[in-house]
């Protein structure tokens, strides 16, 4: 697992330093690929998640949520789109914060 490298790839893609993966159609419109992972030290699972703009897998691989949000938007997804992709991944918590009155 190379979480840092994966996040760096997305960051570089969002900042125009990395182009789209050739021959891949991904994202909301399918008119281009996710980032080209060439040169980044990634596992096969990470390469596939990035180039295929697989937001659910990227989240499961530990990509920071702020990067998830920006990347999803860059790939044409609305927040409601990625919310439904991630829907069942919310960890359950029994914690009760101090501001909760009931």
């Amino acid at each position: 697992m190379s979480q840092y490298q994966l996040q760096k790839l997305l960051y570089d893609f969002l900042n125009g330093r990395v182009g789209a993966a050739p021959g891949v159609r991904a994202g909301a419109t399918g008119d281009r690929g996710g980032p080209d992972p060439t040169g980044y030290d990634l596992t096969e699972e990470e390469r596939a998640a990035a180039s295929g703009a697989d937001v659910r897998s990227l989240y499961q691989l530990g990509v920071h949520p702020v990067l998830i949000n920006a990347f999803a938007r860059a790939m044409g997804y609305q927040r409601t789109d990625y919310a439904s992709m991630l829907k069942d991944l919310e960890p359950r918590t029994e914690a009760r914060p101090r501001w909760r009155s009931s």
Binding site: Y59, H64, P65, V66, L67, I68, N69, A72, R79, T80, Y82, A83, L86, K87, D88, L89, E90, W99, R100, S101
Partner: peptide, 12 residues
């Protein structure tokens, strides 16, 4: 943001 609960607001 960027998580499954995107869209929720904790008014309390």
């Amino acid at each position: 943001i960027g998580v499954p609960r995107v869209g929720d607001i904790d008014v309390e």
